[in-house]
């Protein structure tokens, strides 16, 4: 497979369901036999480590600061999850002092050095594990490690909810940051998540013509929408389950994930 793309998932605000979505898409690819990497670059509020209930000794933070190699940090959990392909995951530290260090103590010079280290690590990951796709989960908003992560990716997916604040913020981020990032050769798209009243049998006014609504949104934010996921309460408030696409493939959410995953593949091939 010649694509070898890096995909970053980002949002203007937290709570858009980025981590759930990226993990499910990545796991679905691995289930279908692709070799996939998933790195938690939400360095300011990491959650993947608790989702997978892992207790690693080394984190991506150590790779960025030059204190560890990428292979010391990542692990293949494909076989653990009974997936056909490799599923390489890397976590970031949720310790307060590590988060503060990334957020406050390190200046722009350090950040650039860390980006260089990450780019090297990324190449090694692709090479050693023969990865087809590398997924990067990012921090919401405009911060060093959301921008750093986005700058190293080929395709950028902006998750947003259908709220005025999200729409305004996303539009502003596209104007301020994404248009600049596209100079790096990357492309960006919107994925709508937790869309209220978007279920097929919904009678809520405004969703009778979802296509027209999406076209209007595309015009307002200035980017193409490549997926729209309804709001599922059982997903949002599930205490333990989060890999629905693997463990509950017939759930409407998993069906949506599957369709978006296909869309993403097409975009990667373009």
């Amino acid at each position: 497979m010649g694509d070898r793309k890096t995909l970053a998932f980002h949002s203007y605000k937290g709570g858009t369901g980025k981590t759930t979505l990226i993990t499910n898409i990545a796991a679905l690819y691995a289930k279908n036999g692709l070799n996939v990497g998933l790195l938690d670059f939400d360095l300011y509020a990491p959650s993947l480590v608790s989702y997978f209930r892992k207790k690693p000794n080394l984190f991506l933070n150590d790779v960025l600061s030059g204190q560890a190699e990428i292979f010391d940090v990542v692990e293949d959990i494909g076989s653990e999850l009974n997936l056909k392909g490799k599923f390489i995951v890397g976590f970031s530290s949720s310790r307060k002092e590590d988060i503060k260090e990334i957020e406050v103590r390190h200046d722009s010079k350090w950040q650039l050095q860390a980006v260089r280290r990450f780019l090297k690590a990324k190449q090694e990951l692709f090479k050693k594990y023969n990865l087809d796709y590398l997924f990067l989960d990012t921090s919401p908003g405009i911060r060093y490690w959301s921008i750093n992560t986005l700058a190293t990716a080929d395709l950028l997916f902006l998750l947003m909810k259908d709220s005025d604040m999200d729409i305004d913020g996303t539009r502003k981020m596209i104007n301020d940051i994404y248009d600049s990032l596209s100079r790096f050769g990357s492309k960006y798209y919107i994925i709508l998540n937790k869309v209220p009243g978007a279920l097929p049998n919904s009678r809520i006014e405004g969703f009778s013509n979802e296509k027209a609504w999406i076209e209007e949104l595309e015009r307002v934010v200035g980017a193409k929408v490549v997926g729209s996921i309804p709001c599922f309460c059982d997903i949002q408030f599930s205490r333990h389950e989060f890999l629905f696409s693997i463990n509950q493939p017939n759930h409407p959410f998993s069906t949506k994930i599957s369709s978006i995953a296909e869309n993403l593949k097409v975009l990667c091939e373009q």
């Binding site: 780019l119 921008i147 700058a151 940051i177 100079r183 790096f184």
Partner: peptide, 19 residues
């Protein structure tokens, strides 16, 4: 912060090009 990030983005561009 926005201004700082925009400047950072410019520096990132050089690194990505080099890479």
């Amino acid at each position: 912060q926005e201004r700082k990030m925009k400047n950072h983005l410019k520096k990132l561009e050089e690194i990505i090009e080099e890479n």
